[in-house]
Amino acid sequence: MSNPQAVTDHLMVELRDVNKWYGEFHVLKNINLQVKQGEKIVICGPSGSGKSTMIRCINRLEEHQKGDIIVNDVPLTEDLKNIELVRKDVGMVFQHFNLFPHLTVLENCVLAPIWVKKLPRKEAEKQAMELLERVKIPDQALKYPGQLSGGQQQRVAIARSLCMNPDVMLFDEPTSALDPEMIKEVLDVMVELAHEGMTMLCVTHEMGFAKTVADRVIFMDGGQIVEENEPHEFFENPQHERTQLFLSQILQH
């Protein structure tokens, strides 16, 4: 039996010399990154360093202007067909959950499977209920997002993404909008997901999470990847001055 945690050689996400500008502002400068199937990457850095922009380029919520992004062997270009293919494979969880407030939790989860993957509603609902059970809120299925707590909403958002059976999950600061006591319930779900072998790219400052699950930690500053290392080395022995300063500031308290 294969170990689900095993990292294979298949390249899931590849960024080659990716550059992006907002008008005059150069947000991403020559980003190179390879993520293998099953790898878990944690991305940190000061605000405005381009970390969110980078992962938002991977499912084309943002357009890059130079370089190549290849997801699961599909190159991201102007071609709408390719964008559709990539988005089917890539799930995303946002800082502010972005659940659809006019739909129930269950409807949030089955909308895309029914209309994008053309699943029968019965099957989609069955799968959604299984995933809601996995994030431990099956009893909230018929409620509306506005009736849930922040932590519950974020767990629904994770389940909603998983309903599309993605190969890669992107997390854009999933716990920054949560009250302290709700952070744990979301992180627990993410750790479990990591143990099941999901390929993950997480923008987060939860250093405990990084130490537990990450294969690599990436530090970004000024639109560049400054440092990249496995977590133990990264925290114990940061090479760059900028990284040392950043770590000293976030670990001070």
């Binding site: 499912n59 919520l61 799930g91 995303m92 909308l111 895309a112 209309w115 994008v116 909603r160």
Partner: peptide, 21 residues
């Protein structure tokens, strides 16, 4: 909010369906 259309895009919903649903 813009986040709504982004979430729909991230789930792979095409533009017309995002508008409709």
């Amino acid at each position: 909010s813009h986040g709504q259309t982004e979430a729909a895009s991230a789930l792979g919903l095409p533009k017309a369906k995002t508008l409709r649903f």
